[in-house]
Write a protein that binds this DNA or RNA. Structure first.
Length: 464
DNA sequence: TCGACCTTCGA
DNA sequence: CGAAGGTCG
């Protein structure tokens, strides 16, 4: 009896339901990771995510090796590879933890074809606190507004306690050959880029737990008051670890509540941020397919949730403007600091993400998907649900009827949240010398007019 | 049905 | 303090 455990967005040994089931039910384990850049349902990884994946896989491989289990690495279309590896190892069981985006359709097909061959193929709870089909309004529809969504989640039975790392694992006798991790060339070729990522981040399960503990010990007490100021390191920095399932949200949830009980610290605001991650994934689950394809335009990978915005008069991206935004050379300090923090470290402070996104979509009037694609490529925490969701939220074309007239003013924001200039000085001290790319007042008026145009006559607009 | 409400605001 | 318009119960 051999269980093939297919690792995907769950690169950990703790709270891994599929691995736990394999340890309990089968005599031997085969651990597999598939780099799938072929299937239509998977979105090709961005550069920063590829770097993270390389590091995370090498740590998972070491952690598994310490328990006597090799990690088999294969590249190709998931359905073909999993079938091949199951065959090569004479697997009787194939177990995995659920995914909730478009990939779940691929998973469903694979499960059916495995079962046809008499293999016990099963999926287990994945990287969410609540299964998306358990959260709905009184009329059974998906929530479109965050606050009632999260209230409903909190009224559900608490998420299951995280599972421990299995105490004993036995390697299956037949271990299929693995490709070499280095041969996948996940590391960026651009000199120095990976250096900036490595300076700030340590991927892997051990580091993830360390970040959570440090956050709960040191940062949670002041989190609510300090989190909006980008010059202060007030966040948990857990987002890339959650993205790859190096830590599960159930572990975060239960440890946070334990800390609250122990020390009385308020973790409500922090868990509510985990709630936003949850909301994005649930929303994507209910708008199946928007995370993939459907775009004629090259480089844009996602569709919008709200069809009313299909005819929105975005300006054709001016190459100079777009480059100035990407490089952090707009002449607006907090925008430039944010964009350079992103490029140099693979991350951007949450509030600054909103400011830079508002600047691109409102002041430059460039399609949110252009910015989404840049963030996808450069963020270590780039997530197929959260990234498009948050871009649409900021640009006012998400599921909720957002107040589109709410245009962030980067100067006002900088004055409010970086008054002492700590953040701008750290990342873009020369920004003050640069000419400002746009007139904030004129471009604000222009954006409001554009939004007005689809509101008044959504059907009269011709397709772009 | 209807009223309270909507993460992150600009002026 | 006003800026829409939809969501939710």
């Amino acid at each position: 009896m051999t269980a093939l455990i297919w690792f995907r967005d769950d690169l950990s040994l703790a709270d891994h339901a599929a691995l736990q089931a394999g340890a309990e039910e089968a005599g031997g384990i085969v651990a597999l990771y598939v780099l799938d850049e072929e299937s239509a349902e998977t979105r090709p990884l961005g550069g920063a995510a590829r770097w993270w994946l390389h590091e995370s896989l090498s740590r998972l491989r070491a952690d598994l090796a310490a328990l006597g289990i090799p990690l088999v690495l294969r590249r190709g279309a998931s359905e073909r590879i999993v079938a091949e590896v199951a065959e090569e190892s004479r697997a009787t069981h194939v177990f995995w933890n659920r995914r909730y985006g478009s990939e779940r359709h691929l998973d469903a097909r694979l499960k059916a074809s495995m079962r046809e061959r008499g293999i016990d193929a099963r999926s287990f709870r994945g990287g969410l606190l609540f299964e998306p089909w358990t959260v709905a309004t009184a009329t059974g529809t998906p929530y479109r507004v965050y606050t009632p969504f999260w209230r409903a989640c909190l009224a559900l039975p608490a998420p299951a306690a995280p599972l421990p790392v299995p105490e004993t694992l036995t390697a299956a006798a037949l271990q299929p050959a693995s490709e070499a991790l280095d041969a996948w060339q996940l590391q960026p070729t651009r000199p120095n880029w990976a250096g900036g990522l490595a300076d700030r981040w340590t991927p892997g399960e051990t580091a993830a737990l360390g970040s959570l503990d440090r956050f709960l010990d040191e940062r949670a007490p002041g989190y609510r008051e300090r989190r909006d100021f980008p010059a202060i390191d007030a966040g948990s920095e857990l987002s890339p670890h959650l993205r790859w399932g190096e830590i599960s949200p159930r572990t975060v949830w239960h440890r946070a509540l334990a800390a609250a009980t122990e020390t009385g610290v308020d973790v409500g605001t922090f868990l509510s941020e985990v709630g936003w991650r949850e909301f994005a994934s649930h929303t994507l689950f209910h708008h199946t397919g928007v995370d993939r394809a459907g775009n004629a335009e090259p480089g844009l990978h996602v569709r919008g949730i709200n069809p009313q915005f299909d005819g929105f008069p975005w300006r054709r991206p001016d190459a100079n403007e777009l480059a100035a935004w990407q490089r952090g050379e707009t002449g607006f300090g907090v925008v430039d600091a944010g964009m350079r923090e992103l490029w140099q470290s693979g991350f951007m402070h949450n509030r600054v993400r909103m400011i830079t996104a508002s600047f691109l979509t409102k002041n430059l009037l460039i399609d949110w998907r252009v910015g989404e694609a840049w963030f996808w490529d450069t963020l270590v925490d780039a997530d197929a649900a959260s990234n498009p969701f948050n871009w649409q939220w900021v640009s006012g074309c998400g599921a909720d009827a957002a107040p589109y007239f709410r245009v962030f003013n980067p100067e006002t924001q900088q004055h409010k949240f970086d008054r002492d200039g700590g953040y701008v000085d750290r990342w873009a001290p020369d920004s003050v010398m640069l000419p400002q790319l746009v007139d904030l007042r004129e471009t604000r008026v222009r954006a409001l007019a554009a939004y007005e145009s689809i509101k008044l006559a959504p059907r009269e607009r011709s397709a772009p």
